[in-house]
């Protein structure tokens, strides 16, 4: 009558079928199940509710829940696909998927563009890049005079902003990362390839009969 749910489904309201998630991503079923072990660990670090809050996300990233960071906030907001202020397991796997070594370059380029288009206008504006640079400098204790920041912005936009309208659109970004492929390094997490060996306990908690699928 729908009154009985498995323990995993009850404790993790967003836990989606690993087979279905694997079919939507570059992950194997085993990798999805190993990711669930990671998800359980992060989502129980402050409140054990089967969801990752911003505080838990920051704790996992920085090992320090107090640290406010423009970029981790932005990543969290992009992972929080449904805009609920928390990340459920389905969001977690589908969002991390773009960082999988087997994910397409096109997806990585699109995600990185969206990441840097902080205000969602469809353009990466010079003022936005300046704001990100200042945040980076604050975070790293690196000191740069405003004049030096402007010089870096001039040089970057000279190369990236082909039509000289003061902002970078998607096609300009595509061209720019093509010339500077190292900018996409942050978009690939080799850990995702080794996730089953990092979290071997997934085998004991598997809900799938044939985990080799």
């Amino acid at each position: 009558m729908g009154c009985f749910q498995s323990v995993a489904t009850k404790q993790f309201p967003g836990r989606e079928d690993p087979v279905a998630l694997a079919s939507q991503t570059a992950c194997s079923v085993s990798e999805v199940e190993a990711l669930f072990e990671l998800f359980k660990s992060i989502s129980s670090s402050v409140i054990d509710d089967g969801l990752i809050s911003k505080e838990e996300f920051q704790l996992a990233l920085f090992k320090n829940r107090k640290k406010e960071n423009l970029f981790s906030n932005r990543i969290f907001d992009l992972f929080d696909v449904k805009g609920k202020g928390v990340i459920d397991f389905g969001d977690f796997v589908r969002s991390l998927n773009v960082f999988h070594p087997n994910a397409s370059q096109e997806d990585k380029i699109n995600f990185s563009f969206t990441l840097y288009d902080m205000d969602g206008t469809g353009y990466i504006e010079r003022q936005e890049v300046k704001q990100m640079l200042i945040a980076l400098l604050c975070e790293s204790d690196m000191k740069l005079a405003d004049e030096a920041i402007e010089t870096i912005l001039d040089k970057t936009f000279l190369e990236a902003d082909i039509n000289r309208d003061g902002k970078i659109d998607r096609s300009e970004w595509l061209n720019f990362v093509g010339k500077n492929p190292s900018l996409l390094k942050i978009m690939t997490l080799p850990y995702l390839r080794d996730i089953t060996t990092t979290f071997p306990s997934f085998v004991f908690n598997s809900e799938v009969d044939d985990i080799a699928t």
Partner: peptide
């Protein structure tokens, strides 16, 4: 001191907040 990269995004990509590898460190 190391030279400062002249590409703004190269600098930004060094942010710890963009380094998701640390999610996997136990």
């Amino acid at each position: 001191a190391a030279p400062v990269p002249m590409n703004a995004f190269e600098l930004i990509s060094k942010s710890q907040g963009l380094n998701l590898s640390s999610l996997f460190e136990k």
